[in-house]
Nucleic acid binder design. Structure first.
Length: 728
DNA sequence: TCTAGAATGTCACCTGTCCA
DNA sequence: TGGACAGGTGACATTCTAGA
C-alpha cells in the first residue's frame, strides 16, 4: 500500500495524521494546500522513451498523437503517452505496426529537459486515470467524474468532479494539484431522450464513462448489434471483444439504434446512445432546480476540503507508481512557510484611521475631496409617476454626501430632454439625442435613473457617447434599487460617483513597499485585442492615473514598444504627483508574464529605476484551508503560504453559503523586493477598491486593469481618463 | 519572423444568492 | 449597489520545435 495509514478524513474531525516533530506555531493548527507532493522522485521512475522520426514537417507536433493511439490499441494493458517526438511507456512496447522508432532508452527522465518533464507528467496522469474503477469513476481529460450522481432533481443530475494536474519540478519533485467541482447533465441517457424527442442535432453530449464531449449528429438505421462500417463490427462486439468492457453493454437492449456523434475534429463516431448524456449549461437550468441543488455545489470549506482529501487519497492510492505520505499534505512539510497578513488600516478625513470604510467615512468623511456637482438623466415618464421617490432619493444622497464631507449639488437640466418627442426606448433615436446632450448640457458626471429594462437598453449607448467619446463618466441606478435605498445602497452609489470624479474616499495609512505600481492586462473581445492597460498606483494605494493604451496587440503578449510607452507614462504621472522620480516600480501582471524582460531591463536601467515583475494568477486549481484543534476546515482571509518566489494567498472571506474562498497565486518573476513585501502590497491593494464598501479578491492594479481594458474594448472609455475611474 | 497542431490556460458570459 | 462564488462554454491566446 502506498499509504502509511489508511484512516480517512471524515468531514472535519477524524484527521488521523500525526506531524513528525513539533508544530511550528505551538498550537494545534493544521494548514493544508490541495497540492500533494509525492515521496517518489523522478529518478526512481524508469520509463521507456522512444524517439520517433519526424514524418511530416507540417504535423510534427501532433503526428505522434495518432501513433500513440494506434500503439495503445496494438499493446493493450500498456500505459502509453506522447509529447513532441517522444513516446513513453512503463513497459517495453512490443508491437509497432506501421511505426518505427529511431531511438529507445530505458532510464529515468532528465529533469533539466522540459520536454521530458512534460512527457512524464502526462504519462503519470494517464496512469492515474487508467487505474480508476471504470464502473465508478469516469477518468479522462484531467477530470475524475463520479458516475453516481450526488443529487437528481427534475431529471437533472449533479456529479462530483475532481480536477487534477501533475507537476514535475526541475529538481524531480512530483506533485499533484487538485480541486473539487461539479458537473450537470440529464439523468436520462440520450437513448431515453430520443424516445421523448428531447435530443436534437447539434446538442452537446458526454460519454459518461470517460468524460469525452461530443456534438450529437444523427440516429442511424442500424442497431447496436449490427456491424457498423466505422468499427467493422457491432458496437456490442466492440466493447465485449475488443475493449473487454462487456459490463458497459450487457444490460442494453440489442435492438437499440446506433447514434452518430461528431468529435472536435469533425470526425464521426458510432455510439450506443445509452452511454451518452446530454450536457447542460448553468443558465439553462430551471430556477427551481438551482434552488434545490445549490447546497450540493456551494460547499463550505469544511465540506469541500474534507471530501477532497478523502477522495484524492482514494484516487491516488490506486496507483503503485507514486507513493504519498499524509504528512506532506501539511504545507509546512512541503516547504511552505505559513504567514498571516494583517488587514490594512485606512486613513479618512479629519485624521480618522479605521479598518472599515463605512465607519471611517461616518467618523471622518473622505480623505481628499472637493464639492461635487452631478447631472441627472431620468427616464422622462418618471417625472410624472415617480417624482416623489426620486426627490426623496436625491435628498438622502445629498445628506449622506455632506456627512462624508463632500457637498453634493444636483444640477437641474431635465429641460434639455424631457419634452423631446422621441421614443426613449428606441436605441437609435436615443443615441442621436445623446450626441446632442453631451455637446450642450451634459458635461458633468451623470447619474442615470431608469428601470432595469430601460437601463439595459441604454447602457451601451450612454457609456459609448458619454464615456467613450465625451469622457463624461456615468453612474446607473435602477428605479427598483432607488426605491429601497438604505445606507449601504446610497453609500455604494456615492462611492461610485466619487471614484468617477477623482475624489479619494480613503488611502492606506502605512506606506506600501514599492513607490509605484503598474497593473498590466490584455483584453480580447469580439476579435479585438487591446493591451498595456496601465493603472498607476502611489505609495498610499491611491490611483494616480488610469489610461487605456491604444495600441492593438497581436496576442496575450505585450510588445516591447508598448511596454516602454507604459513605463514612460507611469514615470511621468509619478513625477507630476510627487515632483520626483520613483525609485522602485512593481509591475502586477494579470496572468502569465510573457513579455521580454531583457528589453524592459534596458529601459529601467537607463532611467535608473529599480523594478519587480510579479504575476498574479486568478485560477489555480488549488484550495487552502486550516483546521484549529480539529474543529473542522476553514479558510481565513489574509493567510498565505510562501515558498521561494511563489505564494498562495486568501484575499476573501466568503460566507459559507456562498462557497469556499479561491486563493490567488503570486509569482515573483524578477526583482529586488522580498516575496513577503510583494504579498503584503498585493493584499493591501485589494482593500483599495474605492468604488464600493467591499474589498476585491485581486489587488486594484490588476483588478482595475481588467475592468478598464474591458471598458476600453467596448469603447466606453476615453483615451485618457486622468484621475476618474470610469469603470468602477 | 513565420508556420504548423495539441494541449493548456484564461477570460467573458450567463443566472442566482448572500452579505455589508 | 457591488462583489464573490457557483459551473460550463466559446473564444482565443500561449507553449513546444525547426526549417525557410
Amino acid at each position: 500500500m502506498p499509504f502509511r495509514s489508511a484512516g480517512g478524513f471524515a468531514p472535519g474531525i477524524n484527521i488521523s495524521w500525526r506531524v513528525r516533530g513539533t508544530d511550528m506555531t505551538g498550537t494545534n493548527t493544521h494548514y493544508i494546500l490541495t497540492e500533494w507532493e509525492s515521496e517518489t522522485n523522478t529518478n526512481e521512475l524508469i520509463v521507456h522513451l522512444y524517439t520517433l522520426p519526424a514524418r511530416n514537417v507540417f504535423e510534427q507536433h501532433n503526428e505522434n498523437g495518432k501513433a500513440c493511439s494506434d500503439l495503445r490499441k496494438l499493446n493493450k494493458s500498456h500505459v502509453i503517452d506522447f509529447f513532441e517526438h517522444l513516446i513513453a511507456s512503463w513497459q517495453p512496447i512490443e508491437h509497432w505496426g506501421e511505426y518505427s522508432f529511431i531511438n529507445h532508452e530505458t532510464r529515468a527522465i532528465d529533469v533539466t529537459i522540459s520536454t521530458e518533464r512534460t512527457i512524464l507528467e502526462r504519462l503519470l496522469l494517464r496512469t492515474i486515470e487508467n487505474v480508476q474503477p471504470r464502473n465508478e469513476i469516469a477518468a479522462g481529460s484531467r477530470k475524475f467524474t463520479w458516475l453516481k450522481p450526488e443529487k437528481v432533481v427534475q431529471n437533472i443530475s449533479i456529479h462530483r468532479v475532481i480536477q487534477c494536474d501533475v507537476n514535475i519540478s526541475a529538481a524531480g519533485v512530483i506533485s499533484v494539484g487538485f480541486d473539487l467541482n461539479h458537473s450537470f447533465r440529464t439523468s436520462e441517457s440520450v437513448s431515453d431522450l430520443m424516445k421523448a424527442g428531447a435530443i436534437l442535432k447539434g446538442d452537446r453530449v458526454i460519454d459518461k464513462y470517460n468524460n469525452m464531449h461530443y456534438e450529437f449528429d444523427e440516429v442511424s438505421g442500424d442497431t447496436i448489434s449490427d456491424v457498423v462500417p466505422e468499427l467493422r463490427q457491432s458496437v456490442i462486439d466492440y466493447f465485449v471483444k475488443e475493449r473487454k468492457q462487456a459490463w458497459k453493454v450487457d444490460k442494453l437492449d440489442p435492438k437499440m439504434p446506433v447514434v452518430y456523434v461528431k468529435m472536435y475534429n469533425g470526425q464521426r463516431s458510432a455510439y450506443a446512445p445509452a452511454m451518452l448524456q446530454k450536457e447542460l449549461t448553468f443558465e439553462s437550468l430551471p430556477p427551481a432546480v438551482v434552488r434545490q441543488t445549490s447546497e450540493v455545489y456551494k460547499q463550505n470549506a469544511n465540506l469541500k476540503i474534507a471530501t477532497l482529501l478523502e477522495e484524492i487519497q482514494n484516487i491516488l492510492r490506486r496507483t503503485d507508481k507514486l507513493q504519498f505520505s499524509k504528512r506532506k499534505l501539511l504545507v509546512e512539510q512541503s516547504g511552505y512557510d505559513v504567514t498571516k497578513i494583517e488587514n490594512p488600516i485606512l486613513s479618512f478625513g479629519r485624521n480618522v484611521t479605521q479598518p472599515q470604510p463605512k465607519y471611517g467615512l461616518e467618523k471622518g468623511g473622505v480623505a481628499f475631496g472637493q464639492p461635487l456637482a452631478i447631472n441627472l438623466l431620468v427616464y422622462p415618464e418618471f417625472f410624472e409617476t415617480k417624482l416623489e421617490a426620486i426627490t426623496a432619493f436625491n435628498e438622502k444622497l445629498c445628506a449622506l454626501s455632506s456627512k462624508w464631507g463632500v457637498p453634493l449639488t444636483i444640477l437641474k437640466k431635465s429641460g434639455a430632454y424631457k419634452n423631446k418627442s422621441i421614443d426613449f426606448t428606441n436605441p437609435h433615436q436615443f443615441a442621436i439625442l445623446l450626441k446632442e446632450l453631451k455637446d450642450t448640457a451634459f458635461k458633468e458626471l451623470t447619474l442615470v435613473i431608469a428601470t432595469e429594462k430601460i437601463a439595459g437598453m441604454w447602457y451601451d449607448s450612454i457609456k459609448k457617447e458619454f464615456g467613450g467619446s465625451a469622457a463624461v463618466p456615468t453612474q446607473f441606478v435602477t428605479m427598483e434599487t432607488l426605491q429601497r435605498a438604505d445606507d449601504y445602497i446610497l453609500g455604494n452609489i456615492l462611492l461610485g460617483l466619487y471614484a468617477k470624479s477623482g475624489i479619494q474616499p480613503w488611502v492606506l495609512s502605512s506606506p506600501l513597499a514599492s513607490d509605484c505600481f503598474i497593473g498590466l492586462d490584455v483584453s480580447h473581445e469580439a476579435g479585438r485585442h487591446s493591451a498595456g492597460i496601465v493603472q498607476v498606483v502611489g505609495k498610499d494605494g491611491r490611483v494616480l492615473s488610469s489610461r487605456a493604451n491604444t495600441s492593438t496587440e497581436a496576442g496575450e503578449k505585450i510588445r516591447n514598444d508598448t511596454m516602454r510607452q507604459i513605463v514612460y507614462s507611469a514615470v511621468d504621472q509619478y513625477q507630476r504627483h510627487y515632483g520626483e522620480m520613483p525609485q522602485h516600480i512593481t509591475f502586477h501582471r494579470d496572468g502569465f508574464c510573457r513579455e521580454d524582460l531583457n528589453s524592459l531591463d534596458e529601459v529601467m536601467e537607463s532611467l535608473n529605476v529599480d523594478y519587480d515583475m510579479v504575476e498574479v494568477i486568478k485560477k489555480t486549481n488549488r484550495r487552502m484551508a486550516l483546521n484549529v484543534d480539529r474543529q473542522g476546515w476553514e479558510t481565513k482571509q489574509g493567510v498565505c503560504y510562501v515558498r521561494d518566489n511563489l505564494a498562495y494567498l486568501i484575499a476573501t472571506n466568503p460566507h459559507p453559503r456562498v462557497g469556499t474562498a479561491q486563493p490567488i497565486k503570486i509569482i515573483k518573476k524578477k526583482g529586488s523586493l522580498s516575496i513577503e513585501a510583494i504579498i503584503h502590497d498585493i493584499y493591501h491593494l485589494s482593500f483599495m477598491h474605492i468604488g464600493s464598501f467591499l474589498k476585491c479578491r485581486l489587488p486594484i492594479t490588476t483588478y482595475y486593469a481588467d475592468l478598464s481594458s474591458t471598458f476600453f474594448n467596448r469603447q466606453w472609455l476615453p483615451i485618457d481618463s486622468g484621475e476618474a475611474l470610469h469603470f468602477v
